[in-house]
């Protein structure tokens, strides 16, 4: 196998691994916002535990989804940095 082919497959593997992470993040993103906040809201309001005094679906739509988005991006940062390091694409800097 030539050098250039090796880089291509290395990069392709990296790209597929990255797409898998993105897909996972976006599935959770869809579930917490559209799923809990809109599509299944009535059912969740009626059948799930209340958050404080707020019905579950309503709370997800007004507060919970936003909290989840922030957590998702933290997880995304962590997983992407690990993936970059694993494939040797990591960079110095960007700390703060």
């Amino acid at each position: 196998m030539s050098d250039s082919e090796q880089t291509t497959t290395h990069a392709a593997k990296y790209w597929w691994a990255k797409l898998r992470i993105l897909l996972g993040i976006l599935i959770v993103w869809f579930l917490v916002s559209f799923g809990c906040g809109i599509l299944f809201r009535e059912w969740l309001d009626a059948n799930m535990i209340k958050i404080g005094n707020a019905p579950f679906g309503f709370w997800m739509a007004q507060q919970g989804s936003i909290v989840c988005f922030v957590l998702l991006l933290i997880v995304y940062n962590f997983m992407m940095n690990r993936l970059d390091a694993k494939f040797g694409y990591d960079e110095k800097g960007g700390d703060v």
């Binding site: 916002s33 936003i66 988005f69």
Partner: peptide
Amino acid sequence: LMGWTGGFV
């Protein structure tokens, strides 16, 4: 609330 924050994801 969801639209203007979820877009950032």
